[in-house]
Amino acid sequence: MPLPEFNLYPDFNTVRLSHAYLNVSDLAASKAFYCDTLGLQITDESETHVYLRAMEERGHHCLVLQKSDAPGTVDAVGFKTYDEADLDRAEAWFQAQGRPTQWVIRPYQGRTLLTSDNLGIPLEFYHKMDRLPSIHQKYALYNGVKPLRIDHFNCFSPDVDASVAFYNSMGFRVTEYTEDEDSKRLWAAWMHRKGGVHDMAFTNGTGPRLHHVAFWVPTPLNIIDLLDLMATTGYVDNIERGPGRHGISNAFFLYVLDPDGHRIEIYCSDYQTVDPDLEPIKWDLTDPQRQTLWGAPAPKSWFEHGTRFTDAETRDSDIAASPIIAP
């Protein structure tokens, strides 16, 4: 199935991904993982919530940990719009697609629109978030893997073609994709707004579910330091995949699991995609360098484990094709 033609003038303008709400069982354990080990900074906390940002970010939060009776689930993923009027245009657009919309109150954010995509992934859009003083040159605060900013979301989709068509209508552009040669259907796709390889990606599988949240770090050596830290502080079993370099995106990566099973990717060294006429790169599903440039396949868990979105019903994919999976 051919990729849709880029929609360069969408009905509303999304700047970038912004934040996610992760439900956790033990705030103290999660705070130890995300702050002491990964190195995110606390911007506010209570008995039920911890708000976090990375070192280059001026917005109040990129990740919200929520104490919940349903840990290992995700309430929503968030995006920033170009201006305030885009929120009203977004409301009209989602209503025209038959999607539910409501205005919700979120701490530290201005007007916030809660809706969902064609699969039921809960999405929220805002324009204004409280700004905090810059800390990117306060080097005494850097620890863990030294995360600089949130980079992307990856979600399982039972119909990647439908997901790509929906987000393409919102102005997201495909940078790279994997096609099943037999059915000519998309197996995975990487889509962006901010000029990197992706803000949102889709991987074939039971969904909708969150596959991972990714954070950008300065260098591959930071990832090596994190591995040494996790291996000697009780987190060796939380290391799932990597380190390695993706064929897709060319990024250096590591995948780890938090105490409730949310997958986090630590990520650096991908490339710019600013040109609006940049042609997407196609990969064959059976190419071993697609997953890892060095040829190492991903473990089975990487294709099966994900975290559910609150109240979103999942369904299985009907694509029979499979990538190469590690034994």
Rank of each mutant, 00 (worst) to 15 (best):
E91W: 12
A92C: 11
W93Q: 03
W93T: 05
W93C: 05
F94L: 09
Q95N: 12
Q95C: 07
A96W: 01
Q97I: 03
R99D: 07
T101F: 01
Q102P: 05
Q102Y: 02
V104T: 14
V104F: 04
V104Y: 04
R106V: 07
P107C: 06
P107T: 04
Y108R: 13
Q109T: 06
G110Q: 11
G110R: 12
G110D: 08
T112R: 02
L113V: 06
L114Q: 05
T115V: 00
S116A: 15
S116N: 13
D117L: 00
D117V: 00
I121T: 10
I121C: 01
I121Y: 00
P122R: 01
P122W: 00
L123K: 00
L123V: 00
E124G: 00
F125E: 14
Y126Q: 02
H127N: 15
K128P: 04
K128H: 14
K128W: 14
M129H: 08
M129I: 08
D130R: 13
R131F: 09
R131W: 10
P133Q: 01
I135M: 15
H136G: 03
Q137V: 05
K138I: 04
Y139L: 13
Y139H: 10
A140E: 10
L141A: 10
L141F: 12
Y142N: 07
N143R: 15
G144F: 09
G144S: 12
V145F: 02
V145Y: 01
V145A: 10
K146H: 09
K146Y: 09
K146P: 03
K146M: 11
P147N: 05
P147C: 03
P147R: 02
P147T: 01
L148H: 15
R149P: 03
R149W: 02
R149I: 04
R149E: 05
D151S: 14
D151Q: 14
H152A: 12
F153Q: 02
F153T: 04
N154I: 13
C155F: 14
S157F: 10
D159G: 03
D159F: 02
V160S: 07
V160K: 09
S163R: 03
V164E: 02
V164A: 14
V164C: 15
F166I: 03
F166T: 02
N168P: 08
N168G: 13
N168L: 10
S169M: 10
M170Y: 00
F172S: 04
F172N: 01
F172H: 05
F172D: 00
F172L: 14
R173C: 00
R173N: 00
V174C: 13
V174N: 06
E176H: 06
Y177I: 05
Y177P: 11
Y177E: 06
Y177M: 12
E179C: 10
D182N: 11
D182M: 03
S183P: 12
K184D: 10
K184P: 08
